[in-house]
Computed example of a mutant assay.
Amino acid sequence: MVMYAHVVIDEHMYVIPHGQVLVELTRRLLAAVRNGGEFVPVPAPGTGAEVLVAPGTSIRIEHIEVEDHSSETSPEPQPYDTSEDYEWWL
């Protein structure tokens, strides 16, 4: 199993892997709130978002556990058999 976090900032969700990246993001979010507001880069894969975080910003961190499929091999794709697709209307 692999742990991830859903970091929800004002209803926008970012998926962050657990570990040092999440710890650093949490630290930056807290610092932004304490400083009265700052732009915080969100290191979510596939996004280049920077979010303005202020004392009134709604922030939730939800921890989720998902199965690790990276070590499993994918089954070979089966050829598509079209021989029976058109029999229903004959």
Rank of each mutant, 00 (worst) to 15 (best):
M1Q: 04
M1K: 05
M1G: 14
M1D: 08
V2D: 11
V2G: 01
Y4N: 09
H6W: 06
H6E: 13
H6F: 09
V7N: 05
V8W: 00
D10W: 07
E11W: 04
E11H: 07
H12W: 00
V15G: 02
V15L: 12
I16C: 03
H18T: 11
G19P: 02
G19E: 02
G19W: 02
V21N: 01
L22S: 10
V23R: 12
V23F: 10
E24P: 00
T26G: 12
L29V: 13
L30R: 15
A31S: 12
A32I: 04
A32F: 05
N35P: 02
F39L: 14
V40Q: 09
P41G: 06
V42E: 05
P43C: 10
A44Q: 13
P45Q: 05
P45S: 07
T47D: 02
T47K: 05
T47R: 05
T47S: 14
E50V: 03
E50D: 05
V53F: 01
V53I: 13
P55C: 07
P55E: 13
G56R: 06
T57M: 11
S58W: 05
S58Q: 14
I59L: 09
I59N: 07
I61Y: 03
E62A: 06
E62Y: 03
E62P: 00
I64Q: 11
E65Y: 02
V66P: 00
V66D: 05
E67D: 13
S70N: 05
S70Q: 10
E72R: 12
T73K: 09
S74D: 07
S74G: 01
E76N: 08
E76G: 01
P77D: 10
Q78G: 01
Q78L: 13
D81T: 03
D81W: 02
T82E: 13
S83G: 06
D85L: 14
Y86V: 09
W89M: 11
W89I: 12
L90P: 00
